[in-house]
Amino acid sequence: MAKVDELKVLLDPVVTGLGYVFWGVEYASQGKHSTLRVFIDHEDGINVDQCAEVSHQISAVMDVEDPIAQNYTLEVSSPGMDRPLFTLEQYAAYIGEWVNVRLRAPFEGRRKFKGVLTAIEDQDVCVTVDGTDYLLPIESIEKANLIPNFDKK
């Protein structure tokens, strides 16, 4: 967690300075095959050239600051339709949408929740699964993604 927080502080100004929204960052340290994934967004959408532009700038900053000691792969992309959710503000923007949530540790006997994002209460995310509301503390969420709805008009 501390490494991800350090990377957020380092990379957010780079992305926003280029005129994009810093959506979030994932870092998976897997020995020789670590991955740094940076999600960017823009009101007009994101294309490959924009990802390349941000990737180039992030690479330059990472080379100078060197926050990751081992080799890693840098990926820059749009959050996409199944966008990951990182902040309470992002969750709040998608109330009423279907989400997949995976917790770091079991809550009421389960780690995975698939349901409707119904509310934000203080630092908790409320997900309704089969008619039952679950208040999940944001700090206990390991990963959360929207479930795309292709039936919307």
Rank of each mutant, 00 (worst) to 15 (best):
D122H: 08
Q70R: 11
D82K: 04
L146R: 06
C126K: 15
V76G: 02
G96V: 11
V4K: 03
D49S: 10
L74S: 12
E26V: 11
R111E: 06
L36D: 01
V129W: 04
V101A: 04
V101R: 01
G131I: 12
K3D: 08
D49K: 06
M1V: 13
Q57G: 00
H42L: 09
L88Y: 07
I46E: 06
K143E: 13
K8D: 15
D82M: 07
D41K: 03
V9D: 11
V38S: 01
K112W: 00
E26A: 05
D133L: 00
G45T: 10
L10E: 02
W23T: 01
P79C: 05
L135V: 00
T73V: 07
G31E: 02
S140I: 03
Q123K: 12
G109T: 12
E75M: 08
P137V: 07
Y72M: 06
T73Q: 07
D133G: 00
R83V: 01
C51A: 12
A60F: 09
I68A: 07
Y20F: 15
D122V: 05
K152M: 10
V48H: 05
L85R: 02
P79D: 05
E97Y: 03
F107C: 07
F107V: 14
A52F: 02
I147M: 11
P84K: 13
P84I: 01
P13A: 14
V101N: 03
G31Q: 02
E139S: 15
G31K: 03
M1K: 12
F150I: 09
D63K: 10
V61D: 09
E53L: 14
L103S: 05
T118A: 10
L136V: 12
V25Y: 04
E65G: 06
R110N: 07
G17P: 04
V15Q: 13
L88H: 08
V99W: 03
G131S: 12
E97A: 08
P84D: 10
F86S: 01
A52T: 09
V101E: 01
I46K: 04
L117R: 05
T87W: 13
Y27W: 14
G45D: 13
V76K: 05
I95M: 09
D151S: 09
E121R: 11
V25D: 04
V15L: 13
V76L: 06
E6N: 12
M1C: 12
N100F: 11
L135S: 10
L74Y: 13
E121L: 08
N149W: 01
K152T: 13
N100Q: 13
Y27M: 07
A92R: 15
A28K: 11
L135H: 13
Q123L: 05
L10K: 01
L88A: 06
V129E: 10
V76M: 04
D82H: 04
I120T: 03
M1S: 15
F107G: 01
G19V: 08
A52N: 08
